[in-house]
């Protein structure tokens, strides 16, 4: 194996470890402003990792969406609510820890049957993908296979996703799109 393959694998693991450190920091911090910033960093590290794993389209999206827009929206929410979190009860934290460790152990047990990382003979690379790679250029004239699969072969899927985005935007408009009418009595919210 060539040096650049090995170095990209090392980079891959190093980025994953950085993501782990960021995630632990998110779990421990109680200043929500810092938590939101760290979650942006987490996304950006994810985007870098996707570049290392040759998923350039995904990296592009994650950098723009996860690190950019999500962070802005979360900061907007902090401005409208509060930026300090209360302490977590220890008993609840222990139960949550035990549950997630148990689920994680089951999932890791499940990966033992999976093909090794980067294995070209893995089943995932042999079902429909050879057809996409071999014939998409003749069939669609688009060299970027991701775009060809996204818009043409899996057009129904993408249509559905577009509708989800449309619906989510409509939902946000319904929930908070209209400026709030100020109540005259001090109790605030109505009990309709």
């Amino acid at each position: 194996m060539s040096v650049d393959v090995i170095s990209s694998d090392l980079l891959n693991v190093a980025l994953l470890v950085f993501m782990g450190i960021t995630a632990v920091a998110v779990a421990r911090l109680r200043n929500l402003f810092a938590v939101v910033m760290l979650s942006g960093i987490y996304s950006l590290l994810g985007a870098t990792l996707y570049v290392v794993l040759d998923a350039v389209d995904v990296a592009f999206t994650e950098a723009a969406v996860g690190a950019g827009i999500s962070t802005v929206l979360m900061l907007g929410t902090l401005a409208l609510t509060t930026s300090r979190e209360k302490a977590t009860p220890t008993a609840r934290a222990r139960t949550a820890m035990a549950l997630s460790v148990a689920i994680g152990a089951v999932l890791i047990y499940a990966t033992l049957d999976m093909p090794l990382f980067g294995d070209p003979s893995a089943p995932i690379n042999h079902h429909v993908v050879p057809r996409y790679l071999d014939e998409s250029l003749e069939e669609t004239g688009v060299p970027n296979v991701v775009t060809a699969v996204l818009a043409s072969y899996r057009g129904y899927d993408t249509l559905g996703e577009t509708f989800v985005i449309f619906t989510a935007a409509c939902g946000v408009l319904v929930l908070i799109g209209r400026p709030r009418r100020r109540k005259t009595d001090g109790t605030g919210a109505s009990k309709a």
């Binding site: 929206l73 401005a79 408009l173 709030r180």
Partner: peptide, 15 residues
Amino acid sequence: AMVTIFCAFAGRDRV
């Protein structure tokens, strides 16, 4: 969608 969502959050008053 992104502009709409941003404007919805930015246009809301803090309570």
